[in-house]
């Protein structure tokens, strides 16, 4: 059971009016290398990300998931620095994460409270929001995704598509300035994939979307191809996808 897609997500009345025009934070990677168990995952990355819609594509094991986790400090580099509007993710991680939201591949592991509304409130409590403001913010965010009716539901009884929308809403309720997605559509059927695609396209904050789903990034401002631990291509979506098809499949 899934609800009809609601009004444009993230653009509900009551949202900060300036949100739609707020510039994306500038994320800079300076000489970033990351290894794991003695194996290099990413090496010598220098990037400056400031576009509103950025896609990241690449094969399994290419390091794109690690790249995503670098952007909000879930992973900090072995060498080099990651700066978000000048803040180092190594020393100011919590502050960075309040501005850079993260949506994971598997919503089962992202929804951490037994009731949907409790899960939505979790991030707001962590931001230190006054208790009396929380229910209003939660209701507003659920409504903006057309899932207000799920507020009192048990998390484990939601469908796959509903879970992914709740996971997305629970990040958006924190009003991040940019959201990083790690393969948000991989586990979804076509219908739910399209709902997530539309939700991402319509939302106010900037987005960095890591995905296998080449069509998802077709309208984006910029697409990176991660290959063998580095950025192999960086440019417009059409050319990036063409490069990826030629060299990686």
């Amino acid at each position: 059971m899934t609800a009809p897609a609601g009004p444009a997500p993230g653009a509900a009345p009551g949202e900060r009016p300036s949100a739609a025009e707020a510039p994306a934070p500038v994320i800079e990677l300076h000489g970033v290398s990351v290894g794991y168990d003695g194996r290099t995952v990413l090496s010598g990355l220098d990037l400056r990300l400031a576009e509103r819609r950025i896609g990241v594509i690449g094969q399994n094991g290419s390091g794109k998931s690690t790249l995503a986790r670098l952007l909000n400090g879930l992973v900090v580099p072995d060498e080099g620095r990651v700066l978000v509007d000048g803040r180092d993710t190594r020393t100011d991680g919590r502050r960075v994460r309040s501005e850079v939201g993260f949506v994971f591949q598997n919503p089962d592991n992202q929804i951490v409270f037994p009731i949907v509304a409790e899960d939505m409130a979790f991030g707001l409590k962590n931001l230190g929001l006054p208790k009396k403001e929380i229910p209003g913010r939660v209701a507003e965010a659920l409504e903006s995704f057309g899932i207000g009716h799920l507020a009192e539901r048990h998390s484990h009884l939601l469908s796959g598509g509903e879970k992914q929308l709740v996971a997305l809403a629970s990040v958006m309720v924190m009003r991040p300035r940019t959201v990083v997605f790690d393969e948000p559509t991989t586990l979804l059927d076509l219908r739910n994939r399209n709902r997530i695609r539309d939700a991402v396209d319509a939302m106010a904050p900037a987005a960095v979307v890591v995905t296998h789903d080449l069509e998802l990034v077709s309208g984006y401002d910029r697409v990176l191809v991660v290959h063998e631990g580095g950025i192999a291509f960086d440019g417009a979506p059409g050319e990036a996808v063409a490069w990826y098809r030629e060299h990686c499949s």
Binding site: R69, N72, L74, R94, R97, S98, G101, F102, F104, N106, D108, N109, Q110, V112, F122, G123, K125, N126, L127, G128, S170, V171, M174
Partner: peptide
């Protein structure tokens, strides 16, 4: 294995509260 993802998801939402 799920625990790693769950912990990341919790940290990503700015846990712990101030």
């Amino acid at each position: 294995k799920a625990a790693d993802d769950v912990a990341d998801a919790i940290d990503a939402r700015c846990y712990p509260p101030p």
